[in-house]
Amino acid sequence: MTTPRTIEVELPSSLDLGDQDVELLKATFQAILSLRCESGCHWRELMQQLRDDGWQVTWGLRWQAQARRGRDSESAGGDTLDQAFDQLRQLTRLDAAPLWP
């Protein structure tokens, strides 16, 4: 098994990074990598098919939050982390709904 390759980037010492900044940098870098590593252009073909079928298609990067507990699993997306987590909280509340008839 090959060791995963990682790269380290030195950040300017003057830069004051919060947790959210670090998450944002990681997510951005992962998105660039997935675009770079994507083999072929299958998605372009699919997008064109959807447009041919009359769909107006847009795409972009969003935050995705997931929560798992036993058999329950929820995931929610949003343009901001607040949006994603607000929605995730609501979805997990739905799981907490009463079980009686």
Binding site: R93, L94, A96, A97, P98, L99, P101
Partner: peptide, 12 residues
């Protein structure tokens, strides 16, 4: 938050 399970399914 205490609505019936069928409402939850409909909301989903």
């Amino acid at each position: 938050r205490l609505v019936h399970a069928s409402i939850i399914d409909g909301m989903r």
